Simulated assay, not measured.
Amino acid sequence: MTENPLDNFIWSALSTEQASFSIGSDRARRFDPAIGPLAGLRDLSPESLAAFAQLVQATGTAALGLTGVTEDVAVPGTQVLRGAEGVQMVFDGNADALSEIERASEDPRILPLSESDYPEMLELALLTEPGPFAERTGDLGQFWGVRENGRLLAMAGQRVRTASHVEVSGVCTHPDGRGKGYAALLSRRVAGAILGEGRCPLLHSYTDNETALALYRRLGFVERALVRFTIYGPE
């Protein structure tokens, strides 16, 4: 693995900023299953792969996001449940994007979400499938949402966190709320909060999701690296 934390972003988070939310060893760690399936490896050595296999066998399904590989990495003692190519994008800070972020931070439609909203957040995530999401994903950072007539129709928030970057994640909109710009609005609100603490917004998407990629480019994000996302289960 290279020395840039973004090249091993999940491990960077789990072994530093978000160690308190993780379980595992000095070679393989994952978020507590109640928070989500994301896991990271110190490297791709046989020892780290074996540690990851032990973690999967002990705690259940886990997902790796690896840069520098184009195929699912074989991990003895586990089985690949699903694999997909993703892209890592970082905010480039152009003036137009920053202006839109500032406007979003003042939009009265956006409401902060809290633990009491977790059941609705999970229901929305299960319906729209924005990526890995569990009952306590909201513990990782602030989420915001938009409600109509009391219903949570859209949300976005913070997930993986390193010393320099924070991930914009969980971006999703209920079918009844689509076409109103909520995904862009909430993504900008999350990005603004990240910039406000002196870190850079980061996000991930699947390479075949052209709609999402086009949106993120409009928001001021640029592609940095390809990421192989693989979900593993016990053998």
Rank of each mutant, 00 (worst) to 15 (best):
L64D: 02
W11K: 09
L153I: 05
A191T: 13
T67H: 02
V168Q: 07
R82K: 11
E135W: 11
T70E: 14
R189P: 00
T211Y: 14
N209C: 02
I110L: 13
S20H: 15
D139V: 11
L49I: 10
A51S: 08
G138C: 03
W11H: 05
V168E: 03
F21R: 03
P132G: 07
E120V: 02
Q79M: 14
V69P: 11
G77V: 04
R218C: 12
D92P: 06
T207L: 13
L127P: 01
E235K: 07
I194M: 10
L64G: 04
W144S: 14
L98C: 10
G65K: 04
V90P: 00
A62H: 05
D208N: 13
F9C: 06
G24C: 10
R178V: 11
I10P: 00
N8G: 12
A95R: 11
D7F: 03
E17F: 05
L219Y: 06
F21H: 14
E167W: 04
R199H: 04
L202F: 15
F229M: 06
L122C: 02
T128E: 13
D32A: 15
L41I: 05
G83E: 05
E17C: 09
E47L: 06
N8P: 02
G36W: 00
S169T: 12
G141E: 03
P130E: 06
T70A: 13
T162M: 05
D32C: 14
A183H: 09
S22W: 03
S187K: 10
T59L: 11
A74N: 11
L215G: 01
T162N: 04
P5R: 04
G192M: 12
L186S: 09
E106M: 15
T173C: 08
G68M: 04
P76D: 08
A212N: 01
T2V: 11
A13E: 01
L226V: 13
Q54W: 02
S105P: 11
E129S: 12
R30Q: 12
G93P: 00
A58D: 12
R218K: 15
F91S: 02
T173H: 06
E135I: 14
F221D: 00
E102R: 14
R189F: 15
A154G: 01
V222P: 02
G141F: 12
M121W: 00
L124N: 00
T137I: 08
Y206R: 14
A225F: 12
D43E: 01
C172Y: 03
L185F: 14
S164G: 13
V75N: 03
P33D: 00
Y182D: 02
Q158F: 11
P76V: 09
T137Y: 00
L122S: 02
G60V: 08
A34D: 13
V166K: 00
S105C: 14
I35F: 01
L122T: 07
Q142P: 07
E17N: 06
L38R: 07
Y232G: 01
L44V: 06
Q142H: 14
L215Q: 06
D139T: 08
L38P: 13
R29Y: 03
V75Y: 09
G220M: 05
V75W: 09
P112K: 12
G77H: 02
D176C: 09
E120K: 01
F31E: 06
G93E: 10
L153R: 09
F21M: 09
T2W: 08
L195A: 05
P234S: 11
G138M: 08
T67P: 05
V56G: 04
A53P: 11
L55F: 09
A95I: 11
S105E: 15
S45K: 01
L213E: 15
G220H: 04
